[in-house]
Design a protein around this nucleic acid. Structure first.
Lengths: 346, 346
DNA sequence: CTGTTAGCGCTTTCAC
DNA sequence: GTGAAAGCGCTAACAG
C-alpha cells in the first residue's frame, strides 16, 4: 500500500535535515540529545529500515579480505579455496576482493608473522589458526588496527577475534563416538584413534568428545592411546599398520584429521596381514575425493563433516557484514556437524 | 590498485553511451549486432562486473512474495515460518515483503484455488505443493503471469516451477534405511513404516529409498506394508499400537512424516503391552521439540532432517535472485540431508 | 538504433 | 549542532 519510507521522510517527520537523521542512524556524535530522541522516535514510530543497497552505493568502498590458510595438499583446505573461487563474481559485484595467504599454520611464529604483515593492509582476515600466545597476539593486533577477524575451522577463543566459523569439535567427536559405538553393534574390543596432532585445538576437542562418549556409553569398547599421524599419509599408514599388528581385537577406528588415505591403505592391504576393513568400523572427518571413495566401497562407515562451501561463504559474509556494520543472521552462520554415510553423500 | 570499473568506463572504451552499454548488459533489443560486439568486448576485456547495489537502487522496486503452506500444527512448517520472521529486517532492508498463506495443502482443489488467487498479485511464490494436475496447472499459470515460483519441501517436477527448495527425498529414505540397518546390528526381524500419505510425493520417495536399501543390503530384515497415519498423532498412535500387537518381532521403525509424538507414545506406553522402545530402532524425520526430546531420552535413535532455517532463507534468496535476474550460487542453495543423533543435535 | 537526463536513497564534505 | 548539496553506479524514460 504505502511506499517504503526513506530517510527523507523521517527527516520531515522529525523536523530536521537529512544529514542529522543520518548522524542519529549511525550514532555519530554532534547531535543534541533532544534531537536524537526526536529522530529516534520518528524512526521507531514508522518502523524505518534503511535501504541496504542505497547505503552500500553511497559509501562506494571496495574492501580487501585475506584468507590465511595452510600451505600444502590438505584436500579440505583446497575445497574451501575452490569455493571462494566460485564466489568470485558475487564478490566482484560487491566490490570485495580476497587474497589467499598460504603459510605454515603449524608453526606459531611463522603464522603470527604472516598475520602481522596484514596489519593496515586489509579490512578483514579469516585465519585457520593455531591456538598459541603469539598467534593470539597477532590476532589482537589486527583487531586493534580496525580489521575484522574470523577464525576458520579451528578457533582461538582467548583472542579478540570477532567470530568463529566452524563446528563445535567436541560435539563432532561425540558424534563420531556414537557412530562407532552403535555400528560395532555390541561387539567388545578396542578402538584406535589416529590424530594429526594433540596440539591442534580442533583435534584435541574431537578426541575429548569421542572418548567421553565411548567411556560413558559403550563400556564394552576400550580406547587405545592416541597416535599422531601429523595428517600425513605415509606416517599414518605406518602407525596404523603397527596398531593393527599389535592389537588383533580392534573393532573400531576414529581418524581425527587428514591422512585418511594412509590409514585406509593399512586397513585394506592384504600384505599387512590385516585386510580387516570389513570388520573394523572406520569413522573419519570431511568429505573429500578420498573419503568419498572409501565410503562408497565400504571401507569407511561414516564421515563427520563440516561443509567447506558453507564455511567459505560464511566467512566472507561475516567479514562483509562486520565491515559494513550490519547485523549477522546468526542462525545462518552456524556451521552444522554433518554425518555423512554412503547414502547421503552430497 | 585500480578503482573498480563502472558502466561509464565501458561506455568510453566502446565509444558508445551509457544507455547502450546498459542495453547490451541486459541483452535488450535495439542495438546493432556490431555495437553489441564492441561493447561485449570491452566488458570481457576488463572483466567488468556491474555493481549490485547500484543496480538494485536504480530500479528501486519493492517486491511481494507469498509462502503457501499447510495450515495446522505441523511443527516443521511452523519452524519455517519462524525463520521467515527472523529475516524480517533483512527483507525490509531489501524492500521485500512476504505474506504467508495458510491453506489445506492436502486438497488439490483448494490449494490450486489459493495459488490462482495470487496470479498478478505477487512477484514470487514459494509453495509446499501436492503433486496433482490442478496444482501443476495453477503453478504454470503463475509462471505465465511472470511470477517466480519455487516449490518447497515437496516438489512438483512436472510443473514449470523455477526451482525446488528441499532435499532429495529418495536419498533421505536411503539414509534412513541404512541407519535402521546398521543400528539393528544384524538382528533379524521386521521393520515397520509409518507414513503420512502415499499421495505426498516426498513421503512416497522416502519410502522408496528406504525399502530399496533394506531389501538390497539388510536381508535379515523384512519390511512390513506401509501404514498411513496422516501426520496425525492420535491416528498414528492407534495404528502403531496395532502393529506392535500384531508383530512381536519388530526391530526397526521408520516414521516418514509427522505424527511422531503419537508413534512414540505407542512405543513407550507400558499399557500397550509394549514398552519396547529400547529394543526397537526408531528413525524419523525433522528436528522439532518432539523429536529432540525423543532423541535425548533414547526413544529415537536418529532423525533425518532438512534445515528449516536454510530452507526458509534459501526460498527467499532464490525468489529474490530470480526476480532480480541474478545468478544463483547453486551450491549454496542445495539443501542437504542432515543425519541427527543425540550428539549432534543442533 | 543511440544518446541525454533525471533520479533511486543514502553518505559525506563543506558551510553556516 | 545542523543543513545544503554533490555524488555513488546504474536504470528508465524520453528524445532524437
Amino acid at each position: 500500500m504505502n511506499a517504503p519510507l526513506t530517510l527523507r521522510d523521517i527527516a520531515r517527520q522529525a523536523g530536521v535535515s537529512l544529514a542529522t537523521v543520518d548522524r542519529v542512524l549511525h550514532n555519530r556524535p554532534g547531535v543534541r540529545a533532544d534531537t536524537v530522541r526526536r529522530v529516534k522516535d520518528a524512526m521507531t514510530r514508522s518502523a524505518f529500515q534503511p535501504h541496504a543497497a542505497a547505503s552500500e552505493l553511497a559509501r562506494a568502498r571496495s574492501r580487501r579480505f585475506a584468507f590465511v590458510m595452510p600451505a600444502g595438499v590438505n584436500l579440505f583446505m583446497q575445497q574451501i579455496q575452490a569455493h571462494l573461487g566460485e564466489m568470485a563474481n558475487w564478490m566482484a559485484a560487491r566490490r570485495l576482493s580476497v587474497e589467499i595467504v598460504a603459510t605454515d599454520v603449524f608453526d606459531p611464529a611463522i603464522l603470527a608473522a604472516r598475520l602481522e604483515d596484514l596489519v593496515g593492509r586489509v579490512d578483514g582476515v579469516a585465519v585457520v589458526a593455531l591456538d598459541h600466545p603469539s598467534v593470539r597476539a597477532a590476532i589482537n593486533d589486527l583487531v586493534e588496527s580496525g580489521a575484522k577477524i574470523v577464525t576458520l575451522v579451528s578457533d582461538v577463543p582467548s583472542s579478540r577475534r570477532h567470530h568463529y566459523v566452524g563446528i563445535d569439535n567436541i560435539a563432532a567427536g561425540r558424534a563420531a563416538g556414537a557412530l562407532v559405538g552403535r555400528f560395532t553393534g555390541g561387539r567388545p574390543g578396542r578402538v584406535a584413534i589416529m590424530a594429526g596432532s594433540h596440539g591442534l585445538r580442533d583435534h584435541a576437542e574431537r578426541i575429548f568428545g569421542f572418548t567421553q562418549v565411548i567411556a560413558a556409553e559403550y563400556r564394552q569398547l576400550e580406547v587405545l592411546p592416541v597416535v599422531e599421524g601429523h595428517d600425513d599419509d605415509d606416517r599414518s599408514e605406518h602407525l596404523m599398520r603397527r596398531l593393527l599388528a599389535d592389537y588383533r581385537d580392534i573393532v573400531g577406528l576414529y581418524n581425527v584429521g587428514a591422512g585418511t588415505a594412509g590409514v585406509a591403505k593399512a586397513l585394506t592391504e592384504p600384505l599387512s596381514g590385516s585386510g580387516r576393513a570389513g570388520d573394523i568400523v572406520f569413522v573419519g572427518h570431511d568429505v573429500t575425493a578420498v573419503t568419498r571413495k572409501l565410503l562408497l566401497n565400504g571401507v569407511m562407515d561414516a564421515v563427520i563433516s563440516q561443509n567447506p562451501g558453507h564455511e567459505a561463504r560464511s566467512a566472507v559474509r561475516v567479514l562483509l557484514a562486520l565491515a559494513r556494520g550490519e547485523p549477522l543472521l546468526s542462525e545462518q552462520e552456524a556451521i552444522r556437524i554433518d554425518i555423512v554415510m554412503r547414502d547421503n553423500l552430497p
